[in-house]
Design a protein around this nucleic acid. Structure first.
Lengths: 228, 228
DNA sequence: ATGGAACCGTACCGTACGGTACGCCTGCGG
DNA sequence: CCGCAGGCGTACCGTACGGTACGGTTCCAT
């Protein structure tokens, strides 16, 4: 693989997954990435360079010029898509029991909604398949933009809530992981494994109930008192 | 694939085959499956028929004769290994608060220990990779021998505990899934994605604490009273 | 206009791997 | 001792796919 191209294209292979802004890729490149993602979602891992080139109406040579090799294209696709996940923003200065509960519910709702989406399932499967080959780069990207992103956003809120005497816990890490478990339960692993009895609509219909239940349970475990 | 050899073929061989679940494999076949599993664990999905044949000191022709095709070999391997997972057995007739707590802890311990094992991670990754190709057979096998097996064993105990007024819940399904979430949290998905910060020994060291914590939390949520 | 950069489409190459064919060896029943 | 079934090892085939090369086209800057 050629190691330097003086083109106005981003450098490949960043060691640590950094936040990717949308200016990182030109519109044309984003169209290619969209095609790649679509193929991933449709065809599972049947992502071939030829297929991407045909779908995006570009030449394979361009793909290799832009992304280096197949792994580079895969990485770019996952990176670009994973960075799109947006977390809810909570104002930590006005924390009340009500605001806390609603914030937690919002986190739970976003988490569940993301997890059951086709795109998320595909990206996680791709990263896991990748991780089965001693390559953890994709896995790290997904982790960084999924669970870790949630953790980064949720932990400060939990700690603020503790400072406001709304929650009680020793380790905010444990509290976060408990919240994650209460929300996700066995949904993600079953979807990743292709459980037939879990259709997306099936889960979707219960999201609200599950969100409320998980939040209630979390507050029952960590709430300073039984509250609204 | 010639249709004379169905999937999951059982060739009647010389001595008495050892019974493994419904499907029986001769010792020689089990040696082949062991080789296949070892290769899976070592090499990720780099499982090639040639590699299995070489490792097991058999000919490729024999592999195809016994297992039909690559998928058949994969299925047989997963089936054979997944069926080895054993669940704790609890005597439902002597349920007390103490026995219940210890039983739950035992379930949690077995679940965690299984999940963090190399073999489990490999099988789950393989099944998920498989599920990314519109094939859910492997996923179903893993589900059936993993989460579903636990559910089958745990739910009767939960219901017995409810009858004994040790637990309180409406849906034993929800109770089971909450237990699963409290125990597994984000450990499995992080391991599947190859999270570097989660070494096996790292998790192993905390198993006991996590088991106790998860059980305590479950009992706090579903126990009839705050009890020992 | 003209040179060149970027890029498309396609043909091409090498390899890896699933699957098959075949020759040879071994153990065993007659 | 013979024949043969089962099985090992290896050579072989076809295909799919990653990666490269190259001619032709568009577009822009000079």
């Amino acid at each position: 693989m050629p190691e330097a191209f003086g083109i106005g294209v981003r450098e490949r292979q960043v060691p640590l997954p950094i936040k990717i802004s949308e200016e990182t890729f030109t519109p044309r490149q984003q169209a290619v990435l969209t095609a790649a993602l679509d193929l991933l979602v449709e065809n599972g891992d049947g992502l071939t360079m030829t297929a991407v080139a045909r779908r995006a109406s570009c030449s394979k040579e361009t793909l290799y010029k832009w992304f280096g090799d197949r792994d580079g294209l895969l990485t770019a696709t996952v990176q670009w898509q994973a960075a799109k996940v947006r977390m809810p923003h909570v104002d930590r200065s006005h924390l009340s029991a009500k605001v806390l509960r609603e914030s937690l519910q919002q986190f739970a709702r976003d988490l569940l909604t993301t997890i059951i989406g086709e795109v998320s399932i595909t990206l996680n499967r791709t990263a896991i398949t990748h991780a089965a080959q001693e390559k953890d780069s994709l896995g790290n990207i997904v982790l960084e933009n999924g669970p870790m992103a949630i953790r980064r956003r949720l932990k400060p809120i939990l700690e603020a809530a503790r400072d406001a005497r709304l929650l009680r816990f020793n380790s905010s890490e444990d509290a976060y992981r408990t919240f994650f478990g209460l929300v996700v339960r066995d949904v993600q692993i079953r979807l990743l494994l292709g459980d037939n009895s879990l259709t997306q609509s099936n889960v979707e219909a219960n999201i609200e109930a599950d969100v409320v239940a998980a939040t209630d349970q979390f507050l029952a475990l960590y709430g300073a008192k039984a509250n609204s």
